[in-house]
Amino acid sequence: MGQNQAAHASSDDVSGEEEFDPIGTLTLIAIYFVILLLAWVYIYYIEFLGRDLVVVG
């Protein structure tokens, strides 16, 4: 369906390019991205740097 939409848009007119609007995919990726950010902040800054005996040399 996405292909059809894209093909349709390109053959139809140039201004219709943004007709293909995968808002669901964008939302999903945004959610994954936020999870990734939070996980990284937790793992690196809280779990790793917050532990005792940080190796400094």
């Binding site: 690196y44 740097l49 940080v54 190796v55 400094v56 040399g57």
Partner: peptide, 15 residues
């Protein structure tokens, strides 16, 4: 953040 770890808290590798 890895750069921050090395520069700020001074995290280093086993020599």
């Amino acid at each position: 953040s890895v750069t921050y770890g090395a520069v700020g808290p001074g995290v280093a590798m086993v020599s």
